[in-house]
Amino acid sequence: MKRFEELFAPHLDAAYNLARWLTGNDSAASDVVQESALRAFRFSQRFTDGNAKAWFLTIVRNESYTWLKAVAGRHWVAFSDEHSEEDELPSQAHSPELLAIHTENASLIQQALCALPPAYREVIVLKELEDLPYKDIALVADIPIGTVMSRLARARAMLKLELMKLHAHE
């Protein structure tokens, strides 16, 4: 138990973040992270050395895709506009106009990111939100580093295109 707490527990937030972006569903993300944590705990003796975060996120990625296959045919679910208690509270320095713009931009980015295919969404999430280096993304996604870089470049271009589409519809 102590080994799990030292190696993998610090990465539970990153695991949930990845699972939520891949599944598009809060409840599914929680289930995926719970199952992934159980697997990491059961098989922690297999992890001998290296990057614990990448190893754990690989399990989360695989569990997320297993969940997606189980609900095949289902459409991607857009994220809700609900905010958790942990969301950043507005400071008094922000005007209502700036807060409205920030909220609208965040919503557009979420919509655009949800429109990307999972393989592209995952590299964006792992790089831009989890700040993993290319080599760790390659481990998590089980693809060569060159593929990570090209997929990330393509994902960024696709994200830009989606944002432009959404902006045009305003």
Rank of each mutant, 00 (worst) to 15 (best):
M1L: 11
K2H: 13
K2M: 10
F4I: 07
E5A: 15
L7G: 04
L7T: 01
F8L: 05
F8C: 00
P10W: 08
H11A: 03
D13K: 10
A14S: 15
A15T: 00
A15Q: 01
Y16T: 07
Y16V: 06
W21R: 05
T23F: 00
S27A: 14
A28Q: 00
D31N: 12
V32W: 03
Q34N: 11
S36V: 00
L38A: 08
F41S: 04
R46T: 07
R46P: 03
R46K: 14
A52V: 02
K53N: 06
W55N: 00
L57R: 00
I59G: 01
R61V: 02
R61W: 02
E63M: 03
T66K: 14
L68W: 05
V71Q: 13
V77D: 14
A78L: 15
F79G: 08
D81Y: 14
E82F: 09
D87R: 13
L89K: 11
P90G: 08
P90L: 13
S91A: 14
H94P: 01
S95T: 15
S95A: 13
E97L: 08
E97H: 08
E97Q: 12
L98E: 10
L98V: 10
L99D: 07
A100N: 11
E104V: 06
N105G: 04
I109S: 04
Q111P: 04
A112F: 05
L113V: 11
L113G: 04
C114Y: 03
R121M: 06
E122H: 02
I124M: 10
K127F: 03
L129G: 05
P133K: 04
Y134K: 12
Y134W: 11
D136P: 02
I137K: 01
V140I: 14
A141V: 00
A141C: 15
A141T: 05
I143E: 00
P144L: 07
G146W: 04
G146R: 06
G146F: 05
L152C: 13
A153R: 14
R156L: 05
M158Q: 09
K160N: 08
K160R: 14
L163P: 01
L163W: 02
